[in-house]
Design a binder for these strands. Structure first.
Lengths: 365, 365
DNA sequence: CCCAGCTGCTTTAGCGCTTTAGTTGTTCGT
DNA sequence: ACGAACAACTAAAGCGCTAAAGCAGCTGGG
């Protein structure tokens, strides 16, 4: 039912209708007609002047601009959009189970980075948080139908991602954040997770670790798969026999539970790589609780960096990247594809670099 | 020729018209006119049917609704808005220094809670992150001028908050999150910070603490002031001589620095209350680093709760509240004030309750 | 048997802006 | 000196939708 809950709309309530000619002018919006009257020209002249198009003399243009400024006029976004202009907004949908959401500073930083590009162009960000991919698709369809957004950012690409084809079919320009390849025609901004994982494992191996575990994220995510594969490949190259990847749902609870299980094994790993900072911190907590000294008996690496990893003790070695800068890159790509579709290819963001802190050391007792 | 008056005006000339309408890709939006044509009625009949207003028979209404459904039609939000309908969006501006932003799960949870109300009504959330209050005002002015939002949520009210009067002047319905009183005519959703602080101090005093410190947030925030005052009052009532509040910028860095300073004093506090979970964790880190045992030699309480406090060791005693539920309350108030201005008064949210974990105990030696 | 009073539509107007097609008044080329 | 080219405007149409007004056809009270 496309119609049912149409926003805040409450047509019935408006029945009272005080538009009578009698009483003082009801609060009307300031329009270009007002400016036109003020300056003594036609509305179209005002439009020309405001949009920097030819058709008015410099003198008139200046007078119009000054009047608009003085009267504190702003274009009515709906009126512009109706004429075919872009909506002036891009959309971001976050599909995350409640618990984990918000624990990760990643999206907040990303959004902040995006804003520095968007707000410079006066483009708004429409944000929606939903429960699952199904709900996400509904939002995309609605936004597209309502012409609310000019572009979309799709995050956390999955291995078989239904969103790609839906968004492509809707014809809304979009950028995928997070993985290389397999996004239909949509360009992607991606970081080299594989290389990052390889670097991490090489480092741990160089320290002398052979039993390395990987507390992974949701297997449905492409980047999870890539990291798992990278670990396996690295293990092969370096001759590490006992590596393992354990999938989780990214929650601190599972991170803790898996860590407890790993550390209880007869041949417990001497190093654990966590796919998120929150899980790494939770893992550190478990180690402390079990009396496993970090980094003495266990080295810990987080695949994501943030205040979290710095604030705990010992501070956690992490793969850090400039999330703010990533947001800038993403937003720029998005603006580009909105303005000139087809001109944007895949963009490689900086590879996360290992920031060594206090949680990693030679394995020993 | 059902509707378009295209026959009236120089039919020949219309052929050469602007858009590449001539050949092939006729990428026109689906409009109610299309539905009207399909069903064999006028556009207004379609409008009536879709909006559930009288003026069409039930039979026709059904046919129209089915056609709309089948053709997957969605109302063009700009067209509706232009007619005077609400924009179908509410705005939230976060003014925060980069560093601290994102470290706090609070806003993510709040937004998630708001969405459960907003998305049920198909109202979008416009989010903007800015550097300071000045920039925030600019955004409000623009959004109001562009008629982009129907309502605003103002967070972190300050002691002398310039935003209140600006927003009131703009005439945009708004709700203030966070403090009681002094918001002009704007209603507020507030939690009883004072009571929460009193409860905390009473608890600590009951444990036997007399030297209690408070690592506060930014003094400009109303809630910071309220907490500082509450601590002072509690100290008076309970006869605690050496309490103190130290303002910070909410960052983990200052939280750590202040903690270090406090613990280095000759008569170091035996309990510290932190205004944010991030600072509490940072403080815990400093204590660990300085060899001050928690809770043995120092009790720690966080004024905000989240995964953060649970994930560290020892887990931190915190004032917890249901942020998601708060988001729901806020969004409901906002929707209400948008639809029926004047009917919303101040709303008191649940008082944060002390969740005792492992970081608090009797003061030790 | 006429018309007030419905019901169920259609027509028309208009929201604020952009855009295209005029319409002046000037200046220039020859 | 006279039309052409141009500059600087104005007029008007139209984007998709809602809402007020209009208008057929029917009903039923007098």
């Amino acid at each position: 039912m496309p119609t049912s809950g149409s926003g805040v709309n409450k047509p019935g309530a408006a029945a009272g209708h005080g538009r009578a000619a009698g009483v003082g002018k009801n609060k009307t919006r300031l329009t270009i007609a007002d400016i036109a009257r003020e300056v003594g020209v036609s509305p179209s002249a005002v439009s020309f002047a405001l949009n920097g198009r030819p058709g008015v003399s410099e003198a008139t243009r200046t007078r119009i601009l000054q009047a608009a400024e003085r009267m504190n006029w702003h274009p009515h976004s709906a009126a512009r959009a109706l004429g075919g202009a872009p909506a002036g907004a891009v959309g971001l949908v976050l599909a995350r189970p409640t618990r984990t959401l918000g624990a990760e500073p990643f999206y907040a930083q990303l959004i902040y980075g995006m804003q520095s590009v968007l707000s410079a162009r006066s483009v708004a960000l429409l944000l929606q948080v939903v429960d699952d991919t199904e709900a996400e698709l509904v939002v995309y369809r609605r936004w597209a139908g309502e012409q609310r957004v000019d572009g979309l950012l799709i995050v956390d690409p999955q291995t078989k991602d239904p969103r790609i084809s839906v968004v492509e079919a809707l014809g809304v320009p979009a950028v995928v954040l997070g993985g290389h390849g397999k996004h239909g025609e949509l360009p992607t901004v991606w970081a080299d997770d594989r290389e990052a994982m390889l670097e991490t494992v090489r480092y741990l191996a160089a320290l002398g670790h052979t039993r390395i575990a990987h507390v992974a994220g949701t297997p449905a995510f492409q980047h999870t798969q890539r990291r798992i594969r990278a670990l396996k490949d690295a293990a092969g190259q370096l001759g590490l026999a006992e590596t393992q990847s354990v999938p989780t749902d990214f929650s601190d609870g599972e991170g803790a539970a898996v860590t407890r299980r790993l550390l209880s094994q007869p041949d417990a790993p001497t190093a654990i790589v966590y796919d998120s900072d929150l899980m790494a911190v939770a893992g550190l907590g478990v180690a402390t609780e079990m009396g496993v000294r970090v980094p003495g008996a266990l080295s810990i690496v987080s695949f994501d960096d943030s205040v979290l990893t710095r604030v705990v003790h010992p501070a956690i070695t992490a793969l850090s990247r400039d999330t703010h800068a990533l947001g800038v890159q993403v937003a720029e790509a998005l603006m580009r594809i909105v303005e000139e579709p087809g001109t944007v290819g895949d963009i490689k963001a900086a590879t996360p670099r290992l920031t060594v802190r206090e949680s990693t050391a030679k394995p020993g007792r």
